[in-house]
Design a protein around this nucleic acid. Sequence first.
RNA 1: GGUCUCGUGGCCGAGCGGUUAGGCAGUGGUCUGCAAAACCAUCUACACCAGUUCGAAUCUGGUCGAGACCUCCA
Length: 489
Amino acid sequence: MEKQLYIQNSLTREKELFTPISAPNVGMYVCGPTVYSDVHLGNVRTFLSFDIIFRYLKFIGYKVRYVRNITDVGHLVGEGDEGEDKIARKAKLDNIEPMEVVQKYTNGFRGVMRLFNIQDPSIEPSATGHIIEQIEMIEEIIKNGFAYESNGSVYFDVKKYNSTHDYGTLSGRNIEDLISNTRELDGQSEKRDSLDFALWKRADPHHLMRWNSPWSIGFPGWHLECSVMSTKYLGETFDIHGGGMDLKFPHHECEIAQNIGAGGKSPVNYWIHGNMLTVNGRKMAKSEGNGFTPEELVTGNHKLLEKGYSPMTVRFFMLQSHYGSTLDFSNEALQAAEKGYKKLVNALKTVTSLHPSDENEVNAEELQAKCYAAMNDDFNTPILIAHLFEGVKIINSVYDGSAKIDDKNLTLLNKVMNLFSHEVLGFVKETSNSNGHVIEGLMELVIDLRKQSREDKNWGVSDKIRDQLAQLNIKINDSKEESTWNHEE
RNA sequence: GGUCUCGUGGCCGAGCGGUUAGGCAGUGGUCUGCAAAACCAUCUACACCAGUUCGAAUCUGGUCGAGACCUCCA
């Protein structure tokens, strides 16, 4: 039952039963960042979506090889194939080596991934590390007649390809529409047709990133690296390819064409596209000036932010929507997520202190089944979270005595809540540092003293303790029998 | 202009033919020395107009509105 996983496949536009090529192995490729600037929250959402997919596939027993590339060359700024390389441009601007740019923002990217508890992929290859393989693939494509050389550059011949294959199936375009919608070439272009895209670009002598090739000293086109690296590490046909919605066309479309042009095989069985994070209904993007970095988010130091939010609050916020839908950012929504997440975390703590009784009114098995069902339905995290809140309600009801649970159900409830919260949704467990024991002891003492003063009806003292602790973000929860505390970040 | 997606209650956001989504906020209770938390109950919905159906937020057509892609973007 756990493995009846359905995935919304962008290629067929249908929800399909997931059947890997060679179970229990699964190959998954996700387009990673171009490391020329800081990632913003919109980027984080995409990688978080695939983090969930990666985690859940493993959770239900698959052995996943997850490849996520680092683009460190070939991604051009601005107009089509005529722009400047993003990395090289940044290097010139900052007057440093291109590889310093790459290193800096790769480090930054990994730091952000860690901050949000997004797991590392199995392989994180970079484009510059695969120049030879890229040249080899270009040679294959030329040999098959789908690419041509022009003035030291090599272009993919889209029209030629389309005469024997369909170009545009993934993004639902047909080539006639594309032709009628593109601008005329200015006559200076090396390309035969405006739809053609670069596989190799000849570099000017002043260009900072250059490699030898049979055609010229130059650099590879952006789309090529993904075709090459996915093939190298996952094979000519593999299970899942993911990326942001905005990469569907032209990037993913070109990938498919390149793979088929080189090896003759359609590369991917399941295409998965994550949707955009929006701000006031508009896509978060650097050009809109509405993107903020994770650092700004945590500190709240941005004009769109009323306050700072913890990474796990943001994670919770994002997972409350489905990866395939746009998600609109707002302070109100973040604050709601903050409270909701806190409620979940508290319940996860409470469940460990519950006492079973002989009677039982809880069906933990059913809850478990519902959690699996939610995730099996195209990784529906908002539904999963809704079910976890059913669990929260149960936990709190048992805690305050209005429901009863037996040992068997309590054990399972605890397990389900923890596994789905931490392993599937990836919420970080509260870590106790080395002073944990000391703090536990101290708090026990403080709470005991407060209890004394309350019994003596010495409200001044008990309230003072509570208020002062509150200033340290330590919150006291009084219930009938006992008082508990927790430290909020 | 072309292709596509979406319009759900105060906010975010699931559902996609018949059942309470869920979280946050609001209201009324219970508990409490007070507060918070928690529990119980409860109020706000499916852009608009037609059609299909015993029955539509969910299907079809139209209207209006928003967005994405078509150029780099997660």
